[in-house]
Nucleic acid binder design. Structure first.
Ligand SMILES: [Mn+2]
Ligand SMILES: [Mn+2]
Ligand SMILES: [Mn+2]
Ligand SMILES: [Mn+2]
Lengths: 231, 231
DNA sequence: TACAAATGTTAGCCTACTCTAACAAAATAA
DNA sequence: TTATTTTGTTAGAGTAGGCTAACATTTGTA
């Protein structure tokens, strides 16, 4: 059984390597900075995690997750994002409030709890930030994320989140019939005033670019593993 | 901000004193035993909690919660029982599975989370063990708990839990239309075979004493603070 | 009342996690 | 290719929470 601290180191390493995409391994200072501890502190823990065969690490070298370390890290991320989804969907939290509480909830140990929560939420694929939720098997497909204004004309996409949280914006979102996991089709863009015509729930609306750039979407086509977010 | 450990000591003290009803204070060994630590360990913590003015304690004396200590302890109990209710009502946990996970969840720090959870569960009054859930204001009415077979003829009561968990029993409970918070009226008891005739949802059933003694109920009349459970 | 048993406290030690200060190695720039 | 900066490590120390062994106090009983 891992401690909260150990879990947080594994998660940090996952975020700094695989999730950020371009790197296979991370340095001690980098890990320390991410976790708000001093390099000396991180160094101790890295030695400990190496001992437990959860990471590969050699003195003065970079660190990376082993297969079992990665599996555990993904488990934590899964829990984090399921809890964020729960808070957002069921408890009326806003998308910017969920992360802090999920940082605590992600460490609750109970495989039954995770699986039942997943079921209760109807096996969600994206969390309120639009990040992919790993499945029970540890698979995580990562979407081509963009904002609604970046979507090409004539294509469909799915709303996965918002970038703004003002009540006026949210009320507008609601009025148009949009919410997470809703299908949106981009019908046209008006060259003159840049208004974007979309179809939601079979109804048509014209929205401003300002509105559209605060709607996070994922294109229908989803490709494997590669995201930028760290929540 | 209190640590998990400190919260557990306060909760232990609440359970050993107010909740068990007959005592105002608890001894060091007793507290240690309840928390599965050695008396020396408990002694250190009691000194620390006294320093923080959360308990009253004098060397070689018994300990008791101060007003602020009691308030915090009740907060933890509130969270514990709300989470148990959540697990039971929403995630299909059985009544004997909820406690262990709630022991972890009760330490999550977020007043918004607690309040929203309470609302989401529709402000439940009893947890799956039939224990009263303290309100947001820290009020906790404690019911006259008994089992269905102990209820007098002609009186109504409310189901607050079960004492058994076999699927055959649970299916029976379900078939009769019973669940937590359901009203039950005891119509009669057959002297010959001791069958109890009850009314649930306007329908009448006869149940055996064996069945009835595994149904936890609370009489309509509720009186202030005094329960025996420690979950 | 005196003594034994039960209860509570202290001292000393341990592990986990954190820090600062000093030092070593690696990477980069002159 | 040497010097400097960046990065990483070690040593020593602190806090929280836990333990054992020894000791002190209180309680209950003979
Ligand atoms: Mn997050
Ligand atoms: Mn997220
Ligand atoms: Mn419980
Ligand atoms: Mn309970």
């Amino acid at each position: 059984m891992l401690s909260f601290t150990e879990e947080n180191y594994l998660k940090a390493l996952l975020h700094l390597t695989i999730e950020t995409g371009d790197k296979e391994e991370a340095g001690t200072n980098e890990i320390a900075a991410h976790l708000n501890v001093k390099p000396a502190t991180a160094n101790d823990m890295l030695k400990k995690l190496k001992e437990k065969k959860l990471i590969d690490y050699e003195k003065y070298g970079k660190s990376s997750l082993t297969t079992s370390g990665r599996k555990l890290a993904i488990e934590v991320v899964r829990k984090h994002r399921l809890w964020e989804t729960f808070l957002y969907e069921k408890l009326e939290f806003t998308w910017d409030e969920v992360h802090e509480v999920a940082e605590q909830l992600e460490h609750i140990q109970s495989s039954k709890l995770v699986d039942k929560l997943d079921k209760f939420l109807n096996y969600p694929v994206f969390d309120p930030h639009g990040d992919a939720i790993p499945t029970a098997k540890g698979e995580m497909k990562v979407p081509l994320k963009k904002t609604l204004n970046e979507q090409e004309i004539g294509r469909s996409c799915m709303m996965i989140g918002v970038k703004e949280n003002s009540s006026s914006f949210l009320q507008y979102v609601d009025k148009v019939g949009l919410s997470i996991n809703k299908k949106i089709k981009v019908l046209s863009k008006q060259p003159y005033d840049e208004l974007i015509e979309i179809e939601v729930n079979g109804k048509r609306f014209s929205v401003s670019p300002k509105f559209a750039e605060n709607i996070l979407i994922v294109s229908e086509d989803v490709e494997p593993m590669n995201t930028k977010r760290k929540n």
